[in-house]
Design a protein around this nucleic acid. Structure first.
Length: 532
RNA sequence: CGGGGCGUAGCGUAGCCCGGUUCAUCGCGCCUGCUUUGGGAGCAGGAGGUCGUAGGUUCGAAUCCUACCGCCCCGACCA
């Protein structure tokens, strides 16, 4: 179906390419249905046009540059579409527009991986909407949302939608269409029950906070030789991990910030950056000693000079254990209310599988997923930068309001196969199958078998049915059966010597494994009925 | 870009540490002939390799050294 030529670069062989064409066709139909117009744009672009939006620098090393001319290979097409828009979309009367293309994109990925999932060259459908007002943009956006659902439904993919907070594209709204897969590069939290889905970077969950004990103990220093991790501490003191406050030190704005987490909870650095309002980095090992006087494993809030931020789960907790800022010592009886002045509380933790869904209380599942499609509202980022303006009803000049919407075409194929296979191979549904029927001729050395097979091939194909004919002369029956199951066409028609004597052939349904004999005279009708 | 691994026939591999008539191994595939033919056949014969590339060390290099190229894995990065 597909063969690698080089890292991240794949050739599509005839079978695989047929599938790609079928997927493209479904996308095309749904895009046309919402008023989209298809373009064919160059992959080779003058560098100049990308300088207008400063994206040569923004893409950096992921953009391919041509060596012997000032050209680049397009990693996406916002600039080119905007270029055409500014030449023709001059009036509010020209709007709205939806323009799309299904074409090859080039990205110099540092590390291509997971086969066709992340390549240096890949097929992408991308469309761009051009609107006069925010309300019109909302309309274009929801049209795409609907079209995307139709496309993925028609491809029979089990997917879910993540409402991502606007990413680096600087938009006001966006949704990602995701499919669960171990090959995925994103980690999401998903609730099967209510459909809550969020990237783990922003996901929340319902989880019990540490309750405040009635009696507050005094601070007490405990000798804990060689105890570094929370697990070791729990074992050593025979306490539960929820009684421990784990410390992490980050550097923000050149100053150390101490983060306290409950037990083995992990710090979600994205959430923390949001709280602090800028880039952070974990403190280096040498810095830790200087800042706290102790090494990692013995750090704690008591005596820490600097800002302290605490996860919500520890809100106003007492009787906690944490590091003593002195190697091999911990402190017990910590009361965050009593012992710290002005502690700040935020949700900072990375959610884990099995925790409560923030919407409906059912259990969340955390897993890897592949992004199949992404729709977002761009606003005027590109139109403003490139001077794509229109005149509104009052004759005033405004930048066109844009949206951008992508689908990874190869990813659709990869995800389909991942969701529709068994131990014997692929199970194609008629919609995406490269061929509808695989015709298996069991013994190509017998003239009567050859003759019957060829007649069936002609009958089926002349009736518009697509047939892959396994006419290998020396391949044995077993080979042909295994290969047919592996390739996975929906129907197999098996022509063998014995059944032919009774003017019968066998038909097998790949999906169910069901097989039965059919009279030669009834075959065409039966096949037509089964591939509906 | 950092760390690790690998490159020997179409594919998968042995040999490399310890250079030399066990040095180019084995399996699959491929070609010819005969037999076999409903879930990956049997017998007989046969073709196929500048050992990634370029230098170097040596009487002698798949084997040791250097550089480069390519691929795989882990990490960083990822509109």
């Amino acid at each position: 179906m597909v063969r690698m030529l080089s890292a991240g670069i794949y050739s599509f062989l005839p079978l695989g390419y047929k599938v790609i064409k079928k997927i493209s066709q479904i996308i095309r139909e749904e895009m046309d249905a919402i008023g989209g117009q298809e373009f064919h744009l160059p992959g080779l672009n003058p560098r100049e046009i990308w300088e207008e939006t400063n994206r040569v620098e923004a893409f950096g090393d992921t953009m391919f540059h041509i060596k012997n001319r000032e050209y680049i290979l397009a990693p996406t097409h916002e600039e080119i579409m905007t270029f055409h828009a500014r030449n023709v979309l001059k009036s509010y009367k020209d709007l709205p527009q939806i323009w799309y293309q299904i074409q090859t994109k080039f990205r110099n990925e540092a590390r291509p991986r997971s086969g066709v999932i992340r390549g240096r060259q890949f097929l992408m459908k991308d469309s761009y909407s051009f609107d006069a007002t925010g309300e019109e943009l909302d309309k274009s956006y929801s049209l795409h949302d609907k079209a995307y659902r139709n496309i993925f439904d028609r491809c029979d993919l089990k997917y879910f939608v993540v409402g991502a907070s606007s990413g680096a594209m600087g938009g006001t709204g966006s949704e990602e269409f995701m499919v669960k897969s171990d090959a995925g590069e994103d980690t999401v939290a998903y609730c099967e029950h209510c459909g809550y889905a969020a990237n783990v970077e922003v996901a929340q969950s319902k989880i019990q906070s540490k309750k405040r004990d009635e009696n507050t103990l005094e601070l007490n220093e405990i000798s804990t030789p060689n105890v570094k991790s929370i697990d070791e501490l729990c074992l050593f003191l025979k306490i539960d991990e929820t009684e421990c406050a784990k410390s992490r030190v980050y550097i923000y704005d050149d100053k150390p910030v101490l983060i306290l987490m409950c037990g083995n909870d992990e710090v979600n650095e994205i959430k923390l950056e949001k709280v602090l309002g800028g880039k952070i980095r974990p403190a280096h090992i040498e810095e830790l000693k200087k800042i706290t006087g102790a090494e990692a494993g013995s750090i704690g809030p008591i005596g820490f000079k600097g800002r302290i931020i605490i996860d919500d789960r520890l809100k106003e907790a007492n009787n906690l254990y944490s590091g003593a800022n002195k190697n091999d010592f911990h402190i017990g009886g910590i009361d965050l209310k009593r012992d710290l002045k002005d502690p700040e509380y935020f949700d900072l933790r990375i959610v884990k599988s099995g925790e409560g869904c923030p919407n409906c209380d059912e259990n969340l599942e955390v897993f890897s997923a592949i992004e199949l499609g992404h729709i977002f509202k761009l606003g005027t980022k590109y139109s403003a930068a490139m001077g794509a303006n229109f005149l509104d009803e009052s004759g005033k000049e405004n930048p066109i309001i844009m949206g951008s919407y992508g689908i990874g075409v190869e990813r659709v194929m990869a995800c389909y196969i991942e969701q529709h296979h068994d131990e014997n191979g692929i199970i194609w549904d008629n919609t995406l199958a490269p061929f509808q029927v695989q015709l298996i001729s069991l013994n190509m050395k017998k003239p009567e078998v050859v003759e019957a097979s060829e007649k069936i091939y002609d009958d089926l194909t002349s009736n518009g049915i697509t047939v892959l004919f396994d006419d290998r002369i020396d391949a044995q029956a077993g080979f042909k059966f295994k290969d047919a199951d592996l390739l996975g066409m929906p129907l197999q028609v098996i022509v063998g010597e014995k059944k032919l004597k009774d003017k019968k052939v066998e038909v097998k349904i790949r999906k169910s494994g069901e097989r039965f004999d059919v009279d030669l005279s009834d075959l065409l009708g039966k096949v037509k009925e089964l591939i509906k």
